[in-house]
């Protein structure tokens, strides 16, 4: 084991949905090295264990923001953490989105459900440095209105286009209905000079990448963030393999040119 988890105190807790919270974490003592958007931390819930969670906000004061969906024993423990509680984190691990490689390009951010969380710091960077890039598009899909995260914020991002769609609208939903790829026709981008950043469930990633290829984006200009079981995050436990990749080391952000042949093999 290389690194020990470093204690962080929960200083803010925002409930996003019935099972998802966004936690702002302040280092109790020493801080971790700076995270880049797309990278992840191993988050430790005392007595429960660790899970890999992408960073969803990188405030300048050294705090870290993570958005956690409580679906297993560990993530449910993280979900339950209240302001004042102490968790521990190690990281940063993995590859980032590398927004700067898209300088001069239109940006197409496509998120499915909680997949918006790892993209959020990328959107913040793109907004802060808007002159370096072309048009910013943010496309968000979710199962239903209750599954949408960062809702207070999404409308405020100064984008060329922000679209939000849900598969199953409830009463009172007046927005778009259907899968997120349906928003691609409304977004404003020049396919030959666009970089796409995609995160969500694998079927959504596959469908989005297929449509983008069809619209003329080169595969290596489509960046996707992938998920596999991870125990160590340091390339030693073997769990996060996807064919030749160790996703903790070679991912989670991978170009579609590399990911496509791997995601089309069943149960790889």
């Amino acid at each position: 084991m290389t690194a020990l988890p470093v204690p962080h105190r929960v200083v803010d807790r925002h409930r996003e949905t019935h099972d998802t919270v966004t936690l702002r974490l302040k280092p109790v003592g020493e801080a971790l090295s700076a995270f880049a958007p797309g990278q992840f931390a191993m988050m430790y819930a005392f007595g429960r264990g660790e899970v890999p969670i992408s960073v969803s906000g990188i405030p300048r004061d050294g705090d870290l923001v993570h958005t956690v969906r409580g679906v297993g024993a560990v993530s449910a423990g993280l979900y339950d953490a209240q302001v004042g509680d102490v968790l521990a984190l190690r990281g940063p691990y993995g590859t980032g989105w590398e927004l700067s490689a898209a300088t001069g390009h239109d940006l197409l951010v496509v998120a499915g459900g909680i997949g918006l969380a790892p993209l959020r710091p990328l959107i913040h960077d793109a907004v802060l440095d808007a002159e370096a890039y072309g048009r910013l598009n943010v496309l968000i899909g979710a199962r239903g209105p209750a599954e949408l995260i960062c809702r207070a914020e999404t409308g405020r991002w100064p984008t060329a286009y922000t679209g939000v769609t849900v598969d199953r609208p409830g009463d009172g939903w007046t927005g778009q209905i259907g899968v997120v790829t349906r928003l691609l026709g409304l977004a404003r981008f020049e396919p030959t000079a666009t970089t796409a950043f995609v995160c969500g469930p694998e079927p959504m990633i596959r469908a989005t990448a297929r449509d983008l290829l069809h619209r003329g984006l080169p595969a290596d200009r489509i960046k996707v963030s992938l998920e596999r079981n991870m125990r160590c995050a340091t390339g030693h436990c073997g769990h996060c393999q996807l064919g030749p990749l160790l996703l903790c080391r070679d991912g989670p952000v991978v170009g579609w040119d590399i990911a496509e042949p791997l995601l089309y093999v069943r149960e790889l």
Binding site: G47, R48, G49, E50, R231, C232, H236, C237, G238, H239
Partner: peptide, 9 residues
Amino acid sequence: FCTTTEEVT
């Protein structure tokens, strides 16, 4: 070489 982890209290 694969390993997993266990949390014990």
